[in-house]
């Protein structure tokens, strides 16, 4: 289990994350939501040690993440950030093979190849595994990167706005795959989302941040209601139930 204890981070004088404490539930999808600049991505970066926290600590199964060996951590927790511009030319398969680096250190054995094959299969990329990334559409590229993270075979998968720049069809596709990762393979997924309805429909728990502080943390149905959402977003967000899904209809809202 991942525990976040009193994490804070400032850039210059601006405090971006302030004293956040929470537990990430295992084998579930947890979504981080909140307005722009709430500190969601910063929090995720600190949990995944891309960024050093000013104060506080992150515990993975009771041990301090900072004291773990970096390759041991890479076998437990994977992180994918939103901007993935590469300045080298790779095929899909080459990229996904990089996911095995923590295990293979660059020399892939049969078992590594099997994981790569499975990861490609899982993201429906087997047919285009020999294509170069720069020949792919945004959605396909995103799937290739997620596929790399799957090949990494970690218990925890952290994703920073994986739906950015994706159309509806591909967004749904990716969320369904994440759901499968949790339900079938028992992974724990933590995801930063902008679209509150994707958070509502697909996640088990929601963590809401605002101005760097934790404002809500609970099961999805407790957060997706007008009162709780007003606290997070400062606006009236009507919630309707459609086919068992709680949908926020905020498009024409009058405070």
């Amino acid at each position: 289990m991942i525990e976040i204890k009193g994490l804070s981070k400032s850039f210059g004088k601006k405090t971006v994350v302030e004293d956040v404490t929470l537990k990430i539930q295992a084998k579930a999808i947890t979504s981080f939501i909140g307005p722009n600049g709430a500190g969601k991505s910063t929090l995720l970066s600190m949990v995944s040690r891309l960024l050093d926290a000013d104060t506080g600590e992150v515990l993975l199964d009771q041990s301090d993440v900072k004291k773990m060996k970096s390759d041991a951590f890479a076998k437990r927790v994977a992180i994918l950030k939103q901007a993935n511009h590469l300045n080298i030319r790779l095929t899909v398969r080459e990229l996904v093979s990089f996911g095995r680096y923590p295990y293979s250190k660059g020399r892939l054995n049969k078992e590594d190849q099997k994981f790569v094959d499975q990861a490609l299969e899982y993201m429906n990329l087997t047919d285009m595994q020999d294509k170069f990334l720069d020949e792919l559409s945004g959605g396909q590229k995103q799937r290739a990167f997620i596929s790399m993270v799957i090949a990494q075979d970690t218990d925890y998968i952290l994703l920073d706005e994986p739906l950015n720049n994706l159309d509806m069809k591909h967004s749904v596709q990716i969320m369904k795959i994440l759901r499968k990762l949790v339900d079938e393979l028992g992974k724990t997924v933590v995801i930063v989302l902008h679209d509150i309805n994707f958070a509502s429909v697909y996640s088990d728990r929601i963590v809401a941040l605002k101005d760097g502080r934790l404002v809500k943390d609970g099961p999805t149905h407790e957060i997706i209601n007008s009162d709780a959402l007003r606290e997070v977003y400062d606006m009236h967000i009507p919630v309707q139930v459609q086919d068992g899904c709680r949908i926020c209809v905020y498009f024409n809202s009058h405070n």
Binding site: S48, L50, I79, L80, N84, L86, F98, Q152
Partner: peptide, 10 residues
């Protein structure tokens, strides 16, 4: 692969 991906891979 860049800083973020490299750290992710240990």
């Amino acid at each position: 692969l860049g800083r973020d991906n490299a750290i992710n891979l240990g």
